[in-house]
Amino acid sequence: MRETTKPISQQKWPVVTAWVIIGIVTVGFLIAIFFTPVNNAMRSATGADTPADAVVKSQLIKRVEASKTGNAATDAKINQAVSKLKTTKMSTIMSAADNQQKMSQLLNADTGLSQKQSEAATSVIFNNTQYKQLRKAVAGGHWVQAYQAYQQLSDNGAISNLKNSVSE
């Protein structure tokens, strides 16, 4: 009986498929590793928000809008903060996360908080070590780490404490 063999082109497909899959996984891994530096380099080179910044900012805006209370005065301040946030570059927010005076000025200008309230908020944020991880992540443009730090602060009540200290 005669032995039939597959043509050479059919024998190569499993090898080619394996290399393609390995290549895709490698590229995905490299993107994951170098995402933050590339994103920060794009921001520095263009001076504008990157697509990742736009996503982060839209999520931040959603969170701020979700805090509306139904009180007309409070909601007007929230609307003002949202409109200012939409026009504020992420590079400005990042530099404020690493400088207490800049953060106080940014909060005062963009949120409707008084100068006294802005200073109180930044004092808490910069003098309490539990906010350090969030500040450093935002200052470095590490959005996943910033989100994780924010979630941790929300879970342990630190965000609520900050809001209460500002409103006092």
Rank of each mutant, 00 (worst) to 15 (best):
V64R: 00
V64F: 04
V64E: 02
E65N: 14
S67F: 02
T69H: 08
G70A: 01
G70H: 04
N71W: 13
N71D: 13
A72Q: 09
A72T: 01
A72C: 11
A73T: 12
A73C: 06
T74S: 09
T74F: 07
D75C: 00
D75L: 05
D75E: 03
D75T: 08
A76N: 03
A76W: 00
A76P: 06
K77Q: 01
I78N: 09
A81C: 00
A81Y: 06
V82S: 03
V82H: 07
S83E: 10
K84D: 07
L85C: 01
L85P: 02
K86N: 14
K86H: 15
T87W: 02
T87L: 15
T87K: 00
T88H: 04
K89Y: 05
K89D: 07
M90R: 01
M90D: 06
S91Y: 08
I93K: 04
I93L: 12
M94Q: 05
M94E: 03
M94P: 04
S95W: 11
S95K: 11
S95Y: 01
A96F: 08
A97Y: 06
D98W: 14
D98E: 12
N99K: 05
K102D: 05
M103V: 05
M103W: 08
Q105L: 15
Q105S: 13
L107Q: 13
L107D: 10
N108P: 11
A109E: 14
A109Q: 09
D110C: 11
D110R: 10
T111E: 10
G112R: 04
G112A: 06
L113K: 12
S114H: 11
Q115I: 09
Q115D: 10
K116P: 14
K116E: 13
E119G: 10
E119S: 15
A120M: 12
A121R: 04
T122L: 13
T122V: 14
S123Y: 15
S123K: 15
S123M: 14
S123Q: 15
V124W: 09
V124Q: 07
I125V: 15
F126W: 14
N127K: 09
N127R: 03
N127V: 01
T129W: 12
Q130Y: 10
Q130R: 10
Q130W: 00
Q130V: 07
Q130H: 14
Y131G: 03
K132V: 08
L134S: 02
L134A: 03
L134C: 01
R135Y: 07
A137R: 07
A139T: 03
A139G: 02
G140K: 08
G140V: 05
G140M: 00
G141L: 00
G141H: 00
G141P: 00
H142N: 10
H142P: 02
W143Q: 00
W143P: 02
V144H: 07
V144D: 05
Q145F: 06
A146F: 01
A146S: 11
Q148G: 04
A149L: 11
A149M: 09
A149F: 09
Y150L: 13
Y150V: 02
Y150I: 04
Q151C: 08
L153Y: 01
L153I: 00
L153K: 01
S154H: 09
S154E: 10
S154A: 12
D155I: 00
D155K: 13
D155S: 14
N156P: 01
G157L: 06
A158S: 11
A158H: 03
I159V: 04
S160H: 06
L162R: 03
K163A: 09
